[in-house]
Amino acid sequence: MFTVSESEAEAIRRAFHERGEWAAVVELRRLFPVFSNNPEALRCVRAIAGWSPLPEAAAPPAEKVTALRRRKPADPR
């Protein structure tokens, strides 16, 4: 298991789309030297190439803030 940052994934996707999957394998193995066999690296490249960047997070809805008020004293009956 390994973690791929968005910039690393973008470099792998760019190599995949511009020069092909084997160029992306070379890029993956350059970034992650732990890969010793090409079939496993190719499987990971195909998975990474299929990713799409995460959408921008939507801003949370603005909440109406009301001022706090003191409680009225209890009616001592």
Rank of each mutant, 00 (worst) to 15 (best):
R46A: 05
R14Q: 13
P33R: 02
D75N: 05
I48A: 00
V26Y: 04
E56K: 11
P61G: 01
A11F: 04
R46G: 11
F32Y: 11
R70Y: 09
A58N: 08
P39M: 13
A74E: 09
P55Q: 04
L42V: 05
R14H: 14
K72F: 07
A23D: 14
A9F: 03
A67R: 13
A59Q: 12
L42G: 00
A74Y: 08
S7Q: 15
F35P: 00
R19T: 09
R29Q: 12
G50T: 07
L28H: 00
R29C: 03
A49D: 08
T3V: 11
A67M: 10
R69A: 09
E18T: 14
I12K: 05
C44H: 12
F32A: 02
F16G: 00
I48G: 00
R69P: 00
R30L: 07
R43W: 09
A59H: 12
R19G: 05
L31R: 08
R19W: 11
H17S: 10
R46W: 08
F2P: 06
S36K: 14
M1D: 12
P61L: 06
V65C: 03
N38V: 12
L28Q: 01
A41D: 06
L31P: 04
I48K: 04
R46I: 03
A41K: 02
A47F: 14
K72M: 07
R70F: 14
E10A: 15
R30V: 03
A41P: 06
V4T: 06
A49G: 13
E40T: 15
T66K: 03
E18G: 05
H17L: 14
L68N: 07
L42I: 01
T3A: 09
S5W: 05
A24W: 02
I12D: 00
V4G: 00
A67H: 07
R29F: 02
A41T: 02
P76R: 06
E18P: 02
A67T: 12
P53Q: 03
R13L: 05
E8M: 07
N38D: 15
W51N: 04
A41R: 02
V45P: 03
N37K: 09
E27W: 04
L28K: 00
R30I: 01
A59P: 05
A47K: 14
R13N: 05
V26S: 11
E10F: 13
A57H: 06
E18F: 07
L42F: 08
T66A: 10
M1N: 10
V26T: 12
K64P: 07
F32L: 04
A11K: 12
V25H: 02
I48N: 01
H17A: 10
I48Q: 02
F35W: 12
L28A: 02
C44W: 15
A47H: 14
R13Q: 15
A23Q: 09
A11N: 06
W51A: 03
S7V: 13
H17Y: 15
R30Y: 08
P55A: 08
P55Y: 08
R19A: 15
R14Y: 13
E10T: 11
E40C: 05
C44F: 13
E63Y: 10
R14K: 14
E21V: 04
C44N: 12
L31V: 06
E63M: 13
E40P: 00
F32M: 02
P76D: 03
V45M: 06
V34C: 08
F2G: 06
E8L: 06
A41L: 09
R14P: 00
R14W: 11
D75C: 00
A47Y: 14
L28G: 00
P73R: 08
P55R: 08
A11W: 07
A23W: 10
A62M: 10
S52F: 09
